[in-house]
């Protein structure tokens, strides 16, 4: 197994692999990205299954919900499968193949997003991500990581309770049984939260010496937030240019506030520095090129990314430059196979 890629590289890769699913539902780029992600998963995680049964089950559930929602709410399209009586409120009308296709493509887009996120979550070293955050955002990062850990902890609590009930001969069968486990799950969750806060407290987390914040810096953060809110308002009222200007000023103030706090940090220790290798450069560059190709295609040939099976079920557009660009999403697989341990 090769050295893991830098977290920054994985974040750029994640943007490149998620973009096609976020901007449209054209099956050609979606399938291309899915193949590329599957190749990356096969190479960087050879011990794991490319697509686990849980993912397949999740996809089938997503597809079922998405298709059902579409066929019942959109009664448009040129290929009618059957007709629900009009007297049924909201869902009455023609059920079309177009709606089935749209629902399936939506599920495919969600699967792409899940697989891309899952690959990054499995490959990225979260402590390294925490170390990359500016000192001023350390509290935010800690809160974020605790929030991210909440759901897995809740699942673990559920399993513990279920096993405890099984041992006592009271398995979870009906809805009424599930209602009884809410209170113990909450109690376990609170217990874990208290333990975590105590752990942070005994390590003096965030307990830096009281420092005097300069008067000039005290008003910058509220001013930055105000500017960003004004920018959002201007954007919503179609004053795009003014919104961009005010937003840029707000962002500049926010960035200055974040990085200016470095001098007042409590001093974090680092035992291992992040190293940027040639593999990182290759994957980050390839992902950046893929992002550029997607942006260019979106500006020049949006139908190559966007696809609408309504009102007529037509063949989706395909563009070779886009497909070639999206193949670059497989770059982590290529560099893992061809260039292991090549430090810059």
């Amino acid at each position: 197994m090769s050295r893991r890629l830098d977290p920054r590289t994985w974040i750029v890769w994640w943007v490149a692999s998620s973009l096609p699913a976020l901007v449209g539902r054209n099956p050609v780029p979606l399938i291309t990205v899915l193949v590329a992600i599957a190749l990356v998963r096969a190479v960087v995680q050879p011990d794991n299954q490319i697509v686990s049964p849980v993912i397949i089950r999740l996809f089938l559930i997503l597809a079922g919900i998405s298709v059902l929602f579409n066929i019942l709410t959109v009664h448009a399209g040129n290929i009618v499968l059957f007709t629900l009586p009009d007297r049924l409120p909201l869902i009455g009308g023609e059920v079309t193949l177009n709606a089935v296709v749209y629902g399936f493509l939506s599920a495919l887009a969600i699967l792409t997003l899940i697989l891309a996120g899952l690959t990054v979550a499995e490959q990225i070293a979260w402590p390294q991500v925490m170390r990359m955050l500016p000192d001023a955002l350390l509290g935010f990062g800690a809160a974020g990581s605790i929030a991210l850990a909440f759901f897995p902890q809740m699942i673990a609590s559920f399993r513990e309770i279920r096993e405890a009930r099984l041992i006592r001969g009271a398995p979870l069968i009906g809805l009424r049984d599930y209602a009884t486990i809410v209170a113990p799950m909450l109690a376990l969750g609170l217990d874990r939260a208290v333990t975590l806060s105590e752990l942070l407290e005994v390590r003096a987390f965030g307990g830096s010496a009281a420092q005097r914040v300069p008067a000039t810096r005290r008003w910058v953060l509220p001013a930055a937030v105000t500017a960003l809110l004004v920018a959002a308002y201007l954007f919503l009222t179609a004053s795009t240019m003014q919104a961009a200007l005010v937003g840029a000023v707000g962002m500049a103030m926010l960035v200055w506030t974040v990085f200016a706090d470095r001098s007042t940090s409590s001093g974090r220790t680092r035992y291992q520095r992040l190293t940027w290798t040639r593999s990182d450069s290759v994957v980050a560059s390839a992902s950046a090129v893929a992002i550029a190709v997607i942006a260019w295609t979106l500006a020049t040939h949006p139908d190559a990314l966007r696809y609408e099976p309504y009102p007529d079920l037509t063949w989706p557009a395909a563009r070779i430059p886009l497909v070639a660009g999206l193949c670059l999403v497989a770059s982590p697989a290529i560099v893992t196979l061809y260039g292991e341990g090549d430090h810059a």
Binding site: I31, T32, L39, I320, V323, A330, L337, Y338
Partner: peptide, 21 residues
């Protein structure tokens, strides 16, 4: 023709990765 070319590109990509592996 474009679908064919797309499929060809994907097949080449898969073969390259499998060969290297």
């Amino acid at each position: 023709q474009t679908y064919g070319a797309t499929a060809l590109i994907l097949v080449v990509l898969i073969c390259a990765v499998l060969l290297a592996a």
